[in-house]
Structure formats: C-alpha cells, structure tokens
C-alpha cells in the first residue's frame, strides 16, 4: 500500500513538472485569442499556419480581424511578417471591394496582428464575400497568398431593427460620392457601463478604392428603442485621423440599444435620423 502511494505520488509529481515546463516553453501561451472566433485557418505546404479571427460572426459593418502566424512544425510565432488583405464581393454583374484597414501588430492582443474590414453588405443571393490574404516578409523572402469565403450576416434582422432607421452600417450618397458609416466597440463586445465607441467613415472612389473621411462633426445619443430612454454622460466621437472618430457610449442596462447619429460636414448635416443598433 505504501509503495503504491509512493508511485502515485511520483507520477503526479512528474505530471506537474512536465505540464509546468511545457506551458513555459510553448509560444502559443503568449497569444491572446480569448473570446475570439476563428474565421479561417490556412495550413500551407511551407510549414506555415495562418489563422484569421474576429470578435464575432462577420456582419455588415465594421469587423475587427486578427491574424495569427506560426510555424506548423514547432508552433513558433511569426510576429513580423507583412500581411495585406483585400475583401471582395463577387456579384453576377460586377465585383467590388470594401473599406479596409491593413493589419498591423496589435497592441491589445499579444502575438497577433489586427486589421479591419467594413463589409458594406451581407452575403446572400446577390453574391458572396471573399477575403484575400497575402503574407510577405517571411524567412528566405518567401511569400504566400490565399483566399477564403467570409459569410457576412445582417445583424439588423431582429425586432426593433426592422425599422430602417436602425442599422449597423449606413450608406449615403453625398455630393455624388458614396459614403459609409460604421461603428466599432474597441473593447470587443458591448457591456453595461462605459463603452469606448468609434465611428468609421469612408467614401468610395471606385469599386476597389475607398478613402477615409476626416473632418466630420459627430454627435451621438443612445436610446433603448423598446423603452424610449437613453443614458447620461456619453462622449461624442472626435476625429482621430484615418476616418476614425473616438468617443464613448454608456449602456445603463443590457438589452437593445440604438445610438442616434447626427453627422455634419463643414457645418452641413449629412446624416441624421439614423441610429446604430445593437443588442446584448
């Protein structure tokens, strides 16, 4: 009996030692992919794995994307490659791209690169979205490229959002140019309390080219559509360059929220009576 205990103890001890070691040595452990959804994994024949993540299922609007590169053989992270992405909507008569922020090394999530795509419409019978990914700057000057389909949903589908005033993305033609307005919560998901809140504005130059729009004045007012009340102490987004406007929005309770927008350009209101809609 005693010997058995001794053996058990030794086995347990060894397991503890080993698990401690492997955790310390494993480069995977330094990558923060908590709460992310895997959109795609590409395994190349050149010993490379590329993983693409998002905060949630891709939807028409601003989608933060995360890219993880590692060697298939030893799981070693590759952190300094150059990634270029290109979304494409293939429709029967024509194709178009979408506003894109090219990946860069993420400050919030260790070991990842982050970029973004504002999908300008959901996938459907009209066509489907693909994302082309190019990776350069690898060892030996190696480059790889692949593409994959991204199913993009429409999040407006539920009850209050059937009102066209509630959207996750607004498109509007201003001075003969097509503008896109999308929101983003940098903390990932909405929560009760103070939420960082960003608005991204782009205009379409041609089917493949989009340009960030700066110099707008944005004011916001949150409301719970089913209740008719708002929340206090919100901060209007202020232009930070590259089409990004940062402020904060307060959700005093969970449920359905609409963030009413008034956007002006050079003193002229270009978007009003419109609200970003979200539920949590």
């Amino acid at each position: 009996m005693k010997i058995l205990f001794k053996q058990l103890f030794l086995i347990a001890f060894t397991i503890v030692l080993f698990s401690a070691c492997s955790e310390d040595d494993d480069p995977k452990i330094t990558v923060d992919i908590s709460d992310l959804e895997l959109l795609h994994e590409e395994v190349t024949d050149t010993d490379l794995i590329v993983q693409v993540y998002s905060n949630e299922q891709a939807f028409s609007g601003y989608n933060q994307l995360y890219f993880l590169l590692k060697k298939a053989s030893d799981n070693m992270l590759i952190e300094n490659a150059t990634i270029t992405i290109m979304p494409m909507m293939d429709m029967t008569e024509h194709s178009h791209s979408a506003p894109t922020i090219q990946p860069y090394v993420s400050e919030e999530r260790r070991g990842l690169q982050q970029g973004a795509v504002i999908f300008t419409m959901p996938s459907g019978d009209m066509g489907k979205w693909t994302l082309s990914v190019k990776v350069a700057g690898l060892e030996n000057g190696q480059e790889i490229a692949f593409d994959f389909e991204v199913p993009v949903i429409s999040k407006e589908a539920t009850y209050q959002a059937q009102d066209v005033k509630y959207q996750t993305l607004f498109k509007k033609v201003i001075n003969n140019q097509r503008y896109f307005f999308a929101y983003h919560l940098p903390e990932g998901k909405p929560a009760i309390g103070v939420n960082d809140f960003e608005v991204y504005v782009y205009k379409q130059l041609d089917m493949m080219t989009y340009e960030a729009v700066d110099g707008l004045t944005i004011s916001i007012e949150p409301e719970m559509p089913s209740m008719g009340h708002g929340s206090p102490n919100n901060v209007d987004p202020i232009g930070k360059g590259n089409g990004r406007y940062a402020g904060s929005v307060n959700f005093s309770m969970s449920g359905d929220w609409a963030i009413w927008l008034t956007i002006a350009q050079g003193g002229e209101v270009v978007l009003t009576d419109a609200a970003f809609y979200l539920e949590f």
Partner: peptide, 14 residues
C-alpha cells in the same frame, strides 16, 4: 435586479 421582458426582442437587465 431588474429584468424586463418585451414581447419581442431581447430582455433587458440591470
């Protein structure tokens, strides 16, 4: 706690 249940849509909580 307070939870509200609208006829349609998501419930609300605080």
């Amino acid at each position: 706690e307070m939870t509200m249940y609208p006829n349609e849509g998501v419930s609300m909580f605080m």
